[in-house]
Amino acid sequence: MSEPLPPTDWLTLPEVAERLELTISKVNQMVRDHTLLAVRRDGVKRVPAELVANHTVLKHLPGVLTLLRDAGYNDEEALRWLYEADDTLPGVPAVALGTHRATEVKRRAQALGF
């Protein structure tokens, strides 16, 4: 397995709240509900910027996070899976979620549970 590519940019939870035009409480709830992925970096919870596009969370992200959680992945492992380089997509699953390849990303996440 190759080393995952890091997210190109990170957003703090207040930045996500501003981008999504939500309260910080709602963003925290999304993280607790696993509809948004946040991990600690330098002691601060951060979200990969690619997962938040056009004032919304990527459409297929909550479903993929559920599939990864069902397969036993914690948040750090889910982040690693989302940013694992995959030449067959091409790129990384996190970026592919925002394209016509989202169905393929979901199919691969679902296969992890078997």
Rank of each mutant, 00 (worst) to 15 (best):
K59P: 10
G98M: 13
D9H: 07
S25F: 00
I24K: 14
Y83E: 00
L89W: 01
A71M: 09
A17S: 03
E77F: 03
E15V: 05
Q110P: 05
L51Y: 09
V105N: 07
V52Y: 00
A109V: 04
L89Y: 03
K45I: 01
T12A: 03
P93Y: 03
V47F: 05
L13K: 10
R69C: 10
L20N: 11
L67E: 09
A96Q: 07
L82F: 11
W81F: 08
K26V: 11
P4M: 05
A49H: 00
G91W: 01
T103Q: 14
A94S: 05
G72Y: 09
V95P: 03
E21P: 05
T66G: 11
A78Q: 04
G63A: 04
T8N: 13
L65T: 00
L36C: 00
E77G: 15
T8Q: 14
H100W: 11
H34G: 03
T99L: 06
A17Y: 12
V52L: 08
P90I: 13
K59Y: 15
W10G: 00
A109I: 03
L37R: 12
D42F: 13
D86R: 05
L20H: 10
V57W: 01
L82P: 01
L79D: 04
A109Y: 01
M30Y: 11
A17N: 08
Y83Q: 00
L82G: 02
H60S: 11
M1I: 11
T8K: 13
E84M: 13
D9A: 15
G43N: 07
R41L: 03
D70A: 10
P48G: 00
P7Q: 06
N28I: 01
L68P: 06
F114I: 13
L61G: 01
W81S: 08
H55C: 09
R19K: 14
P14G: 04
A102T: 10
V44Y: 14
P93D: 06
Y83M: 15
L58M: 10
A38P: 03
A78L: 08
L5K: 01
L67N: 05
L67I: 04
A102W: 14
D86K: 02
